[in-house]
Amino acid sequence: MKMAAFWRTLVITLFLAFMILPVLATLGFSIATRWDRSILPEGLTLEWWQVVVERRAFLLTLRNSFIISLATAASLTLLVTPSTYWAHLHVPGSKVVFEIMSVFAFGVPGVVLALSLIRFYSNIPIPLINTPNILVAASMVLCFPFMYRPVANALESIDARVLSEAAQSLGANWWTTLIRVIVPNIMPGILGGCLLVFSTVFSEFTLTNLLVGSRFKTFPLYLVEFTRFDGRQASALALISFVVAWIASLLIIWIAGKSGKPTENLVGGR
């Protein structure tokens, strides 16, 4: 059942306009001298960009966001890859654990996750609360399915059992098999997962705001602060966020395309 050409064009045009206009407007606003009383910008300037990137807080928050995003992606890789491989070979029945953890990530709202961690760890003498470490842990909870799904799919698409038995009959132990045989074979899955985790954490606001706040200010927190007092500089910051998210997503699609697997559709934190 095909749609008539006229309707098809109309629907796609409207869809594209809705998805792209806000991004274009953000770009335009960040390079306009003034654009709040005329249809077209009154003039063009790079002044706002210059002011924004020269601030010390800009580099600091950008650096903090990179640290948290990379730490989350790395920790999740270390947690998920060996566990998924182990489960795949030795505990097929444990798949339900991974699924429950994935559903938890989507089903528990960010504010509820933050509340539960604060309530639990404030009563325990472990210095976790208000530190970037608790933020990494919470981000790992949020991003668990983004790492697990691509890794599990990649494991199912290779013959992990035969590969493992071949490696072990040649004298490799479990860790050697994992690192030298399995990981290279599921690399597209791991990389795709890492990118999705990275871009999700890079734009994460809820958990950061509630768990660490201004003690460890990340890029999205900085952006929200700016939206309250300078729209033009905020639009430059918002555009940077969009560009990071776009680059990460396009890399994911590219990697998935190269490995011949369809991309996962997943739901990020908002």
Binding site: P22, T200, T206, T227, G231, L250, L266
Partner: peptide, 24 residues
Amino acid sequence: DVTTNFGGAPLAFAFIITLGSTGV
């Protein structure tokens, strides 16, 4: 695929610029 993972602060701000009282 790309836009479904968008959201949060940048998105909200883009809509202020587009559909705010002096939006484009």
